[in-house]
């Protein structure tokens, strides 16, 4: 029917970036399973996948009661030794039975949640990505955010991290829904930290779609964080040197991390490309980076002319 997921992204709680071997240890969350690491064009480490069992109501815009039983797939990732993610998703399918089956049935289909009874894909997609409707739904409703949040916590709580992050920046969450159909993508900013993504892709779902969503989440977090840092620097109202000092963490820790679509399979790159045209993630990123660098340049010039002035006296 559809696939829904949620990615939580945050700054790794460590003073500097961590090495590839530390990444492997931090993300080694299952015995006997290897952490996958790719080094080009940016170091990206991905934990083994783990499952969480659920039996609850699924979000539906119509607020009809739809029961789903199955497992959520989750994993953690660290990009550039600096950005941490917890990511979860479920493939929602119709159950052939109208009652809950023995648990071994669901474990034979990892990452699938089976819907007991009637449900419409559009209703669930709206329910999951739409703004929460007032009034709590009857019974417990699938909370992928909590699952992803716990996997991000798992990384952040690693004893290998010194928990002295260079700056404070909020986590962002990206809820996504993927369906098969005519290609389209819709990225929506809700509150400061909440984003949703509706994706329609040709052909059946593959985990490459999850990679795309995680890649978008990483870059949206980078952009959001850089905006926050630039805003905090209060360029123009604070003295140049002070503004530059506030911008320094971005130079040290963020600017080199921008690698859009680096890990996205070729057939999915048109989705990134269309987001690059509107709203233009890279365009905004470049303009921000230019702003940061211009501030540094102007401040350097000011310092140089000040010292030349002192020299002439």
């Amino acid at each position: 029917m559809l696939v829904m997921g949620e990615v939580h992204t945050g700054l790794l709680q460590n003073s500097g970036e961590i090495s590839e071997s530390t990444c492997r240890q931090v993300l080694g969350i299952t015995a006997g399973e290897t952490v996958r690491v790719s080094r080009r064009p940016i170091v990206h480490a991905l934990s083994p996948e783990r499952l969480t069992g659920v039996d609850c109501t699924l979000p539906a815009a119509s607020r009809s009661r739809v029961r789903g039983v199955g497992t959520v797939v989750s994993r953690c990732a660290v990009t550039g030794g600096r950005v941490a993610q917890g990511s979860s998703y479920v493939r929602v399918v119709r159950s052939e039975a109208d009652r809950r089956l023995p648990w071994s049935h669901y474990l034979a289909r990892p990452g699938v949640v089976e819907v007991l009874g009637k449900a419409k894909a559009a209703d669930l997609a709206e329910g999951f990505t739409g703004d929460p409707t007032p009034g709590s739904p009857d019974g417990a409703c699938l909370n992928l955010g909590a699952v992803s949040g716990r996997f991000l916590d798992l990384v952040q709580a690693s004893p290998l991290l010194d928990r002295r992050a260079p700056f404070k920046i909020p986590r962002t969450s990206l809820r996504w829904v993927a369906e098969t159909g005519e290609p389209s993508i819709r990225f929506t900013l809700h509150t400061e930290q909440e984003r949703t993504l509706r994706l329609t892709h040709p052909g059946p779902f593959t985990p490459a779609v999850v990679d795309l969503c995680e890649d978008l989440a990483t870059h949206d977090w980078l952009l959001t964080s850089l905006l926050v840092i630039v805003e905090r620097a209060r360029i123009g109202t604070t003295p140049g040197a002070a503004a530059v000092a506030r911008l320094a963490p971005a130079i040290d820790h963020l600017l080199h991390l921008w690698m859009p679509a680096a890990r996205v399979e070729e057939w999915l790159t048109p989705f990134w490309d269309s987001l690059e045209r509107r709203p233009g993630f890279t365009r905004q990123w470049r303009s921000l980076v230019d702003r940061v660098r211009d501030q540094v340049a102007v401040n350097t010039l000011a310092l140089l002319s000040a010292s030349a002035e002192t020299g002439r006296r």
Binding site: T30, A31, T52, G53, D55, T71, N143
Partner: peptide
Amino acid sequence: DRLVDDPPPETDGSRPP
């Protein structure tokens, strides 16, 4: 590490098993 607990009804993922 590969055990996935059989969830009782009303398990929505908001708390660890």
